[in-house]
Computed example of a mutant assay.
Amino acid sequence: MLHAYLVDDELHTLNMLDMFLVRTGKVVIAGRSGNGFEALEALRLMRPQVWFLDIEMPGMNGLELAEHIQQADPSAAIVFTTAYDQYAIAAFELAAIDYLLKPVEMGRLSRTVDRLEKEIEWRQSAAKTVPEPPQRETLDVYMLGTFRVASSSGSGIAWRTAKVKELFAYLLLHLPNANEVHRDRIIERLWPDEPYEKAKIYLHTCISLLRKNLRQIGFAKILGFEKECYVLDPDQIRSDVHRFEAGFQAGHVGGSTPIAGLEQSLELYRGDLLGKEDYPWAVELSHQLEKTAVVGLLKLSQLYLAEQSGKKAAEAAERAMDLSPYEEEAYRLAMQAYLMMGKHDHVLRTYQELKERLGELQIQPSALTRQLYELIATPGTERQEPEG
């Protein structure tokens, strides 16, 4: 027998649903409430297998109540009862076990109960056969370059929709210090052009799918929800973005030397933040991280020069030039490195590239850079800059 809890602010609907469920002979009514707040009180005392939730209720609607239920009991099955139009029904098909249109019909309810029996039986069987993940299992996330997510044992996430993937990325970038993100802020960023009530439905759908994705690879309790805010558990996640930022904030103390620390931090920067994704809300942070990488590369090139490592200094400077084509110091460091190696033709080439870049901004290289260029001229001959 299935144990079910019913929530609906319409007493007539509540009574009809109660009667029809009992009539199936497969359901025991564990309790019922006329609003979401009463249901939350019941949630502290019991864990019914199934919750039947009305969508439109005053104070706390069914979508919000479902978030609290899934947070407290990820294994709970949810069925929505709704009078919403077709777009909402399509969303609920993704987020819940099933949906019921009001007024509830006995035949349709019987099919829902059959579906619930199969789903709960499958969940119970899966819980017995799938071993618990190791205690130190972590979710490894790569966002600098190609966006990839997988458990430390290699289990990857197959995203159900692109929006679920984007939602996870947004929540992850608020991870440091377990920063909570309010529901309305998420809606503002991810569904800025949608009506608020419709956007809440989309958010709930994506949250439900995200929880399902994470639960399937052993992270049922990684996503928290409280006071209309969502937060990911930082202890269960290793992110290249956060390790990259932490390395610079800590002054590159992770390595045995300043060079080693910089190398370790910069190794994580394999491309723009979420470079292959079209997330407008990530653009500003992407630019900040790129600037941090450029500053780190310039410092690394200077350290290599101090150690007379011309080749490595040139490589670091060239990488900084690729990231920031108008950064004059990067060109100057590359010129110094090539001069150290005796590669005068590379000095000329680098200087010419700098002149062309700065020419686009209608400015000239600084006196310091021009003086460096002059060092390669043959003594006793007239020093000429390359044309251009």
Rank of each mutant, 00 (worst) to 15 (best):
residue 148 R to D: 11
residue 148 R to C: 05
residue 148 R to L: 10
residue 149 V to H: 05
residue 150 A to E: 14
residue 150 A to M: 13
residue 150 A to K: 15
residue 150 A to W: 05
residue 151 S to P: 08
residue 152 S to V: 10
residue 154 G to S: 07
residue 155 S to I: 05
residue 155 S to M: 10
residue 156 G to V: 12
residue 157 I to N: 03
residue 158 A to R: 11
residue 159 W to T: 04
residue 160 R to C: 00
residue 162 A to N: 09
residue 163 K to P: 00
residue 164 V to T: 15
residue 164 V to N: 01
residue 166 E to C: 03
residue 166 E to W: 01
residue 167 L to N: 04
residue 168 F to Q: 02
residue 170 Y to P: 00
residue 170 Y to C: 07
residue 171 L to Y: 04
residue 172 L to H: 07
residue 172 L to A: 05
residue 172 L to R: 03
residue 173 L to C: 05
residue 175 L to H: 06
residue 175 L to T: 06
residue 176 P to F: 06
residue 179 N to I: 04
residue 179 N to F: 01
residue 180 E to M: 06
residue 180 E to C: 01
residue 181 V to H: 05
residue 181 V to A: 04
residue 182 H to K: 11
residue 183 R to I: 04
residue 183 R to S: 13
residue 188 E to A: 14
residue 188 E to G: 04
residue 189 R to K: 13
residue 189 R to W: 01
residue 190 L to T: 04
residue 190 L to H: 03
residue 191 W to P: 05
residue 191 W to Q: 02
residue 191 W to H: 09
residue 191 W to R: 02
residue 192 P to E: 05
residue 192 P to A: 04
residue 193 D to G: 08
residue 193 D to N: 12
residue 194 E to G: 00
residue 197 E to G: 09
residue 198 K to F: 12
residue 199 A to T: 05
residue 200 K to G: 05
residue 201 I to L: 14
residue 201 I to F: 02
residue 201 I to P: 02
residue 202 Y to E: 12
residue 202 Y to S: 11
residue 203 L to A: 06
residue 203 L to E: 07
residue 203 L to S: 07
residue 204 H to L: 09
residue 205 T to I: 02
residue 205 T to M: 15
residue 206 C to M: 10
residue 206 C to Y: 10
residue 207 I to P: 07
residue 208 S to I: 07
residue 208 S to Q: 14
residue 209 L to W: 02
residue 209 L to D: 08
residue 210 L to A: 07
residue 211 R to G: 11
residue 212 K to L: 07
residue 212 K to F: 03
residue 213 N to E: 15
residue 213 N to L: 00
residue 214 L to D: 13
residue 214 L to Q: 12
residue 215 R to Y: 06
residue 216 Q to A: 15
residue 217 I to H: 06
residue 218 G to D: 10
residue 219 F to A: 09
residue 220 A to N: 03
residue 220 A to G: 14
residue 220 A to W: 00
residue 222 I to L: 15
residue 224 G to I: 00
residue 224 G to W: 10
residue 226 E to Y: 10
residue 227 K to W: 06
residue 227 K to Y: 09
residue 227 K to E: 15
residue 228 E to H: 13
residue 228 E to Y: 13
residue 228 E to G: 00
residue 230 Y to N: 02
residue 230 Y to G: 02
residue 231 V to A: 14
residue 232 L to F: 09
residue 233 D to R: 12
residue 234 P to C: 11
residue 235 D to W: 06
residue 236 Q to P: 00
residue 238 R to L: 13
residue 238 R to Y: 10
residue 240 D to Q: 12
residue 240 D to E: 11
residue 240 D to I: 06
residue 240 D to S: 09
residue 242 H to S: 10
residue 242 H to T: 08
residue 246 A to C: 03
residue 248 F to P: 00
residue 248 F to L: 09
residue 249 Q to D: 14
residue 249 Q to Y: 11
residue 249 Q to R: 15
residue 250 A to E: 15
residue 251 G to Q: 08
residue 253 V to T: 12
residue 253 V to F: 06
residue 254 G to Q: 14
residue 254 G to Y: 03
residue 254 G to H: 05
residue 255 G to S: 08
residue 256 S to H: 10
residue 256 S to D: 15
residue 257 T to E: 04
residue 258 P to M: 01
residue 258 P to D: 01
residue 259 I to F: 00
residue 260 A to I: 01
residue 261 G to V: 04
residue 261 G to P: 08
residue 263 E to K: 13
residue 263 E to L: 07
residue 263 E to G: 01
residue 264 Q to S: 13
residue 265 S to P: 01
residue 265 S to E: 09
residue 265 S to G: 09
residue 266 L to T: 06
residue 266 L to G: 05
residue 267 E to C: 02
residue 267 E to D: 12
residue 267 E to Q: 10
residue 267 E to N: 08
